[in-house]
């Protein structure tokens, strides 16, 4: 049975909340569940966590929610501003509503779920995390994405996957346009399995039939083939 702690931001500062989550909570051992009340669009809530705990933010929140997360499972019961779960290392971050720009930017590991839409640059610079978006994503999503998987159940805006490295994108809906060096590739068995697994983990039906696979054409990996090693 989870042990529940309620922290009300009506009477606590963001700093007090984070220090409690960093210092006091881990010392109490595993299995704790923290409810954060009255987030009221505040920024930097539950950043830098490094403990296997559950944190529920009960309402809308601002920028950088659950930034650099390790181990913790953070759920926002509302919408979030820019850069939710930026640089996430492990654990999971779930947004019940929509996310603004740069969701999971440069995420290294773990799972990020945006149940509704994510705005532009979702998964920008991602480095190994997995992202599942229930709705659509805005322009330049997965820009310079290096590793990991972005699954979008809805549509993708202009310039999807511009300058992609080894990250792979799956889109269930329409793609407005692909960015430089991104290309559509045939869905293989492993791709269907990968999408199904991520959809299941994210709590969506594992229907993969309509998904397209977008990956790097790798033509930007080397600058100028003719110039050899002269530059």
């Amino acid at each position: 049975m989870d042990r529940l702690i309620q922290l009300d931001l009506a009477g606590l500062t963001v700093r007090e909340l984070n220090q409690f989550l960093h210092q006091e909570l881990p010392s109490r051992g595993a299995g704790w569940h923290v409810d954060v009340l009255n987030p009221n669009g505040m920024h930097n809530l539950a950043v830098g966590l490094n403990a296997s705990v559950d944190v529920d933010i009960r309402g809308h929140a601002g920028y950088f929610i659950a930034g650099m997360n390790q181990q913790a499972r953070v759920t926002v019961h509302g919408n979030v501003g820019w850069s939710v779960a930026e640089n996430i290392m492990s654990g999971s971050v779930r947004v019940k509503g929509c996310a603004s720009e740069c969701a999971a930017a440069s995420g290294h590991g773990g799972l990020v779920v945006i149940e509704q839409d994510a705005s532009s640059r979702c998964g920008i610079s991602m480095k190994g995390c997995d992202i599942v978006v229930g709705g659509s994503v805005g322009h330049l999503s997965a820009f310079m994405a290096q590793a990991g998987t972005l699954v979008v159940r809805g549509n993708a805006g202009p310039g999807l996957g511009d300058s992609l490295y080894e990250a792979v994108i799956y889109v269930g809906g329409e793609i407005h346009s692909l960015g430089a060096d991104a290309r559509e590739e045939p869905m293989q068995m492993e791709d269907h399995a990968r999408v199904a697994e991520l959809l299941t983990r994210a709590g969506f039906p594992a229907e993969t039939g309509r998904f397209k696979r977008i990956a790097s054409a790798r033509s930007l990996y080397h600058w100028h083939a003719d110039a050899g090693d002269r530059y």
């Binding site: 220090q19 930097n44 950043v47 830098g48 920028y63 930034g67 850069s83 930026e86 920008i124």
Partner: peptide, 27 residues
């Protein structure tokens, strides 16, 4: 490498970004 940060753009965002780094490192 990129020339702009992936998770903030202008000086107002930078203010929040610096606060995030401070929060993570407990000031």
């Amino acid at each position: 490498s990129a020339c702009r940060h992936p998770d903030w753009t202008g000086p107002d965002d930078l203010t929040i970004k610096l606060l995030e780094l401070r929060e993570i490192t407990d000031w």
